[in-house]
């Protein structure tokens, strides 16, 4: 089935099994390896992408869900000014350990920064509650997002 969508701000079209997992479409058909597979059941957040302006787990979406929608992957987020700010803050606070969860955290954090951005720890924790870090480095991750929120608020970004 022919599926048309906007991927990282570019119109794309693909002939694909409509039930193919969106995660596999992104990785195999478009070579976007930022989205990882962890649990494959929507519980770990390694495959988080922005879909229709909301962060979702792409491992439990199908190609058909993308039809006529807009998708921003970790690669796309990294090109955005707020994505760059987040990467800078993750870097400064040494928030990334093994790194596999990082693209997912980046996408969820980006959405929070874009739609809310209030530097409030409890709100950040809720926004990131769908992403799991097996190194359990949450403290530094929350600190880096808090820092990004503060910088955005004070107009440094």
């Amino acid at each position: 089935m022919k599926i048309n969508f906007i991927l990282n701000k570019e119109a794309v079209s693909i002939d694909v099994d409509p039930m193919k997992r969106l995660l596999d479409v992104l990785r195999e058909d478009f070579g976007l390896m930022g989205s990882k597979e962890g649990c494959g059941e929507g519980e770990c957040g390694l495959c988080t992408v922005i879909y229709d302006n909301k962060p979702v787990t792409s491992c439990i979406l199908n190609a058909i869900h993308a039809d006529n929608k807009e998708i921003l992957t970790a690669e796309g987020v990294a090109e955005e000014p707020l994505g760059k700010l987040l990467i800078e803050c993750f870097d400064e606070t040494n928030a990334v350990q093994c790194g596999i969860c990082f693209p997912g955290f980046l996408v969820s954090s980006y959405h929070y920064l874009l739609t809310d951005g209030e530097p409030v720890l409890e709100k950040i924790k809720t926004a990131l509650s769908g992403n799991i870090c097996r190194c359990t480095g949450y403290k530094k991750i929350f600190e880096s997002v808090l820092l990004a929120c503060q910088r955005k608020k004070s107009g440094e970004a």
Binding site: G42, V56, T57, I60, L61, S108, G130
Partner: peptide, 9 residues
């Protein structure tokens, strides 16, 4: 219910 990522879908 679950997480914001699942609540959205």
């Amino acid at each position: 219910f679950a997480s914001p990522l699942l609540q959205a879908m």
